[in-house]
């Protein structure tokens, strides 16, 4: 059923992405592609992978933006994947029942055996989280690594989405955003995490932590550290040389 579940367990699994610490290395995207090429939604087809215009299905893409001007300007690396919305328009527009939101944890998935490949869900998603696979003729999207997070064959520490476990900067966090006491919810509260396009009302579960305030020259006096000095700690010989050479 593409109607949204009427009851909920309150559990909302999702990601918290730290725009302050992300270094834009694309490891999350690459490892996502690697894992999911053999996972729940496999294959993630590539067209012309070694040709002039390689194109293919990815669940996670790292954009980079410049924001602000001059001293307040900065570069922001911006990973984007499915936000597993509480009001997922991609689910309700689906004519076949292929798209659904799980009652037990809020994950949005596609049942590829029911998908007719009409692409309407990709039109309804504001974030570009769904990509069409022309080879399979169906729509594909992030599964929040449904085949890892509950996978008892994996060591417990690895039961997180692969984009989270692979991030070298710890810029990605996974947990239950429906539980206000969870680590991820606490992180969102302490860092002022935000929704993307909150005005559109999709109520995304994934949150983004904004960049921390920029450290300016005024507050640390970096230049002061480079001014030549001869402090007392330099020793008597060097102080004598300093006096000798000073005009």
């Amino acid at each position: 059923m593409t109607s949204l579940p009427t009851q909920s367990t309150g559990k909302k699994l999702g990601l918290v992405i730290d725009l302050d610490t992300c270094v834009g290395c694309h490891a999350c995207s690459v490892n996502c592609k690697e894992w999911n090429s053999g996972g729940h939604a496999a294959p993630l087809t590539d067209l012309e992978p070694y040709g002039a215009n390689p194109d293919g299905v990815w669940f996670n893409r790292v954009h980079s933006f410049e924001v602000g001007e001059g001293d307040t300007g900065r570069t922001v690396y911006f990973p984007k994947s499915c936000l597993h919305c509480d009001e997922p328009a991609c689910v309700t527009v689906c004519p076949t029942g292929a798209s659904y939101k799980r009652v037990e944890d809020g994950i949005v998935l596609v049942d590829e055996d029911k998908c007719i490949g009409c692409k309407l869900c990709s039109w309804a998603c504001p974030y570009g989280a769904r990509e069409y696979d022309p080879t399979e003729g169906v729509m594909k999207k992030c599964t929040l690594c449904i085949d890892r997070i509950y996978n008892e064959n994996l060591p417990e520490a690895e039961r997180v989405p692969v984009c989270v476990s692979t991030c070298p900067a710890s810029a990605r966090h996974f947990g239950d955003l429906g539980d206000p006491n969870s680590e991820v919810s606490q992180l969102v509260a302490s860092r002022g995490g935000v929704d993307l396009m909150p005005e559109m009302g999709y109520q995304p579960v994934n949150k983004y932590l904004p960049p921390r305030p920029k450290v300016t020259n005024d507050s640390v006096h970096l230049a002061a550290g480079l001014t030549p000095t001869a402090p007392d700690s330099a020793g008597k010989f060097l102080q004598w040389v300093d006096r000798l050479l000073s005009p």
Partner: peptide, 12 residues
């Protein structure tokens, strides 16, 4: 608003 960077300046 799409990038959650409202208040940080123009996004490009």
């Amino acid at each position: 608003s799409a990038t959650g960077l409202t208040g940080f300046g123009a996004v490009r």
